[in-house]
């Protein structure tokens, strides 16, 4: 590829992007290198080999680079599906680098003679006021997205309390985990009653479960495994502290969990 600066740059960039996208620990940094590798370089290399003997307008070249990269990804997934190991980060990186290298090599062979083709980035010379306007637009977009991704309070939204139960059983012990989550819009105080046995023979009560909005508390209730081997019902009832006689939430489980699967 001697003499073809753009092709050498494309190959080098694909190798660099692939290695860094695979090795960098932070997802945000990996995005910076994965985007050109996935959305531009394969298409650019294919355009280079396809139009090796013709000059494309810059807009056509950029559009085809992006569009053919998308097509390469759609078709590349089918190819990788039938490769050993399937669709993984490493196989994607390898495939995309191979596409770039092969197409760039083909372009270098097909081009009439070594050229100094560059990507041809247009020279822009905006005035200070224009730069200010562009920066203002970018800041407005940034603010718009920050606001869009920010959860906001919504006083009229109807909150709720969630409750769940999860039985556990192993050789050493059995019991249930009971989770209570306050998804109301204000602090809440609960009481939890856990009835164990067919008639609720044993009852465990947890008072003073005070939760702020968004908080969750998990209680672990150990339960003796019945010697008969018959499953024991466990029913957990949650009440609001200020209305202790009115069941608010109720969940149930069997210890040990038995029955057919599926």
């Amino acid at each position: 590829m001697r003499g073809h600066a753009d092709l050498r740059a494309a190959v080098a960039a694909s190798l660099l992007c692939a290695v860094l996208a695979l090795l960098l620990p932070l997802s945000e940094l990996r995005v910076v290198f994965a985007l050109p590798l996935t959305l531009f370089l394969p298409g650019y290399a294919i355009v280079a080999v396809t139009f090796a003997r013709r000059r494309l307008e810059r807009a056509q070249m950029l559009l085809l680079s992006l569009g053919l990269s998308l097509a390469t990804l759609a078709l590349g997934a089918i190819l990788l599906n039938y490769m050993p190991g399937g669709i993984r980060a490493g196989s994607w990186a390898l495939l995309l680098v191979l596409v770039v290298i092969a197409a760039s090599r083909g372009a270098a062979l097909r081009r009439p003679r070594p050229t100094t083709t560059k990507l041809g980035i247009p020279r822009l010379s905006p005035r200070r006021a224009e730069l200010g306007l562009l920066a203002g637009g970018a800041l407005a977009v940034l603010a718009a997205f920050l606001l869009a991704f920010m959860p906001l309070s919504a006083e009229n939204a109807i909150g709720y309390t969630e409750m769940w139960i999860k039985p556990f059983s192993n050789e050493s012990r059995a019991g249930v985990k009971i989770g209570v989550g306050n998804r109301e819009q204000s602090d809440a105080e609960y009481r939890l009653r856990v009835h164990i046995g067919p008639e609720g023979e044993e009852t465990v009560v947890y008072r003073d479960i005070a939760l702020a909005p968004g908080q969750t508390q998990v209680r672990v209730v150990p339960i003796e495994t019945p010697s008969s081997g018959q499953p024991t019902p466990v029913v957990a009832v949650l009440v609001m502290a200020d209305s202790p006689t009115r069941p608010y939430r109720r969940v149930s489980a069997w210890i040990p969990p038995t029955g057919e699967s599926g």
Partner: peptide, 8 residues
């Protein structure tokens, strides 16, 4: 078994 509830 009623394993989860959030009201509705």
């Amino acid at each position: 078994a009623r394993v989860y509830t959030n009201g509705p």
